[in-house]
Design a protein around this nucleic acid. Structure first.
Length: 272
DNA sequence: TTAGCCCTGAGA
DNA sequence: TCTCAGGGCTAA
């Protein structure tokens, strides 16, 4: 499930591979992944040149000539792959961009189809709802603001970390890993977490995201780099997916609970 | 705040 | 054949 580090890696790869190229073809095989009318996208994107690639939260932002932006959200199982145009389409490929003077094309595949592609102008008012609602990027967030915001919230701390309006880009894996490092129980009410632990959490989030990005993200089920390679951070997960294993710090068993429909992994000794 | 929806592949 | 995984969203 791609979160900030995985999306960041895709963006870095894309920058090297497709910036400056012009779109010579677009194919849509499954329009349910589109958040923009199909005709509008098909007509608008042809011939445009890719100027810049960026990221906002878990959204990939592709800036095109003509004041246009292509937004891609990978959902849970979405993959962006740069493949030979001549190679066979893999199952669940829903969207393909071809480029002038290139034998390669950008393919979006997503078995579960939770991913979304949107096409907008540069006008912020037109950005996808999900983008407009995003909170600050973790690395842009002021430490004091982070603490004072959480101190005012009664919701469970992990629910807040997963809420993209609070902080953009953190998902289930990195929320669990950050809470573990900060020694905070996922069910704890934010307002009840001591200030020093919130400060620790702030640092933990930055550290975890930074380390994961450096290691190419976490490949659990589906996540792959643009070239099909896997990330390596999953080897360093301390709690996520490790139910029944021993905590590397205290030796207690890693537990799993359900929170808002998602699994949460934690050490009941180290996290209070 | 929570349940349910979207959706398919993997595993029991 | 059934259950589970869950990001983002809506409805209750």
């Amino acid at each position: 499930m791609p979160e900030l580090p995985e999306v960041e890696n895709i963006v870095l790869d894309l920058k090297n591979e497709v910036v400056g190229r012009s779109v010579s073809g677009v194919k849509i095989y499954h329009s349910s992944i589109l958040a923009t009318p199909r005709k509008e996208l098909e007509k608008g994107i042809l011939g445009q040149r890719i100027l810049q690639i960026g990221r906002r939260g878990k959204f990939i932002r592709i800036d095109l000539s003509g004041n246009l932006i292509l937004w891609i959200h990978l959902g849970m199982t979405g993959q962006l792959l740069l493949e030979d145009s001549a190679s066979a389409l893999r199952p669940h490929t829903h969207f393909v961009l071809a480029f002038e003077d290139s034998g390669k094309c950008l393919r979006f595949r997503d078995p579960r189809r939770f991913g979304r592609i949107a096409f907008t102008s540069q006008d912020k008012e037109r950005f996808p709802e999900g983008v407009r609602r995003l909170g600050p990027e973790p690395q842009e967030w002021n430490k004091e603001d982070f603490v004072s915001l959480l101190k005012r919230r009664r919701a469970r701390i992990k629910s807040l970390l997963l809420d993209q309006r609070v902080v953009a880009g953190v998902g289930n894996i990195y929320a669990d890993e950050s809470l573990y490092r900060a020694g905070i129980h996922p069910l704890r009410r934010a307002e009840r977490v001591p200030k020093r632990r919130l400060l620790r959490l702030y640092d933990a989030i930055s550290e975890v995201l930074e380390e994961a990005t450096q290691l190419g993200g976490s490949s659990i089920d589906d996540y792959l780099h643009l070239d099909g390679e896997k990330g390596r951070f999953q080897e360093f997960h301390q709690v996520y997916g490790r139910v029944g294993e021993r905590c590397s710090h205290c030796g207690s068993e890693i537990r799993r609970i359900k929170l808002a429909g998602r699994s949460s992994f934690f050490c009941s000794q180290c996290q209070r």
